[in-house]
Amino acid sequence: MSFIVFRYGSTFKSCCRFGLLRAARCLRLCSAAALLMLTVCDRHDSGRASDKTVASQPVVVGSKPVSSEAMTPKQMYVAYCSACHTLELVESQRLDRTNWEWVMDDVVNEYGGTWITEQEREILIDYLVENFGPAGDSGEAAP
């Protein structure tokens, strides 16, 4: 639900329009309570390799109340990467391991985007190479 509220503010507005101001406020409060959570959203669940066991519960990042050990690589990817930017950017890339390592190190060291352990770094890079590598499986043919 929080996903819908974040992305389409019209939900709030249309509630108001139908006189459900109180309900809308409640909804807004709920969404606010969920603000620090990143919901693993459905549209990123379809069709990617390797990861058929994505859970739909929220993943909390930042202060790390949920250990990354409990996350699948895909959950980790969504949680860490989409904290700063939407995932189209990642999914449009076709990069080899050297380049993904370069990107990941820049994200951490240059852009200050996230904090990860060495182990998490390896898991994320493996995931990125497997899914968005030079011969990725999502559409465009490799050269």
């Binding site: 950017l89 449009s92 890339q93 990069l95 050269p143």
Partner: peptide, 9 residues
Amino acid sequence: FEPRVRGNP
């Protein structure tokens, strides 16, 4: 660019 490079395509 070939090979592909990082960044907005």
